Amino acid sequence: MRELLKNNPLKLFVLAVIFAPIIEEMMFRTLIKPSHSDIILLLCSWPLFYSNKFIPADVHWVIKLGFIAIFLFTVFTILKQLIPEHRTLKVRNFLSRNATVVLIVSSLLFGMVHINNYVDTFVLNAALIALIIPRIISGFMMGLLKIKNENIAWPMALHAMNNGFVIIILIFSKTMENS
């Protein structure tokens, strides 16, 4: 993140405020009281997350994100046609009945995924726990927002606002340092 802040703050902003909230919310909040579309989004998000690793590193980041968006839209559209709503009904009912457990597990996983934002190698210590607990709490809050509004767009928006606030402060701080 420091490297992006220094070399390409626009890329950092787009990745952290647009791309990450959409993909991460699809990965972590779609199982909380899911709709049929949420299940399809979940099925799209994890392969999308891993397919990103196969795009060559030298591809311009805008082209890469464009490809990912097209890939997401295409896979979502295909899966929506292939998987009828009645096929996901039992899974959706089970997940909805167990929404509290799903909320807690998804919040913990969300926090753990963000460990990579702070360390290169995993070493559990008090500092790392102090950094991850707010991510777990924010994951929990975004999950509650998903439950209350029954729409993934709300946690995506909250996630984007949270990240945007931090990124704008970082960019502003960097600009003030360079002045």
Rank of each mutant, 00 (worst) to 15 (best):
H86P: 07
I32C: 05
T77N: 05
A153C: 03
A99E: 03
I55M: 00
A130C: 08
L124G: 11
I152R: 02
F19D: 02
L41M: 15
I68D: 12
I22K: 15
I115L: 04
I147W: 03
F76N: 05
A20W: 09
V123C: 12
V102F: 13
N52Q: 11
L79D: 12
T88W: 01
L31N: 02
K64H: 03
K80W: 01
V102M: 14
R97E: 05
L158Y: 12
V59K: 06
M141H: 07
I152F: 04
L103H: 13
V113C: 08
H159N: 10
L128F: 15
L43P: 03
M27H: 01
R2D: 14
L72G: 04
I136D: 05
M142H: 08
L170K: 12
V101S: 08
A20E: 06
V105W: 09
F71S: 10
E177V: 10
V59H: 10
I132G: 00
F122R: 13
K90V: 12
K80S: 04
V91S: 14
K11T: 01
I136C: 06
N93C: 06
P155V: 04
G164N: 10
K64L: 01
F76P: 00
R2N: 14
I23G: 07
K148H: 13
L5I: 09
L65A: 06
I22D: 12
N162H: 15
M26A: 11
A69H: 04
N151F: 08
V113T: 03
F13D: 00
I137W: 06
V105D: 05
V91R: 14
M161R: 13
K64E: 02
I168R: 00
N163G: 10
I167G: 02
F172T: 01
P9G: 01
G164T: 12
T77F: 04
R29G: 02
S45Y: 10
L158K: 08
I55C: 00
A20Q: 10
L48H: 11
L5C: 06
P84A: 07
M27N: 05
W46F: 15
V166A: 11
K11P: 03
E25H: 04
K6N: 03
V105E: 05
L79T: 07
D58K: 00
T30K: 08
E85Y: 00
G111Q: 02
N125W: 11
M156K: 08
R135W: 15
T121F: 11
A127T: 13
S96H: 10
G139K: 07
L41S: 10
E85C: 03
I115K: 01
M176Y: 15
L131V: 10
L124S: 15
W154A: 09
I169P: 07
I133T: 14
T74C: 12
Y50N: 12
I83E: 04
A153I: 09
I104E: 00
I132S: 00
E177I: 11
N151R: 13
I129Q: 12
V119W: 09
A126L: 10
S51G: 05
L124Q: 14
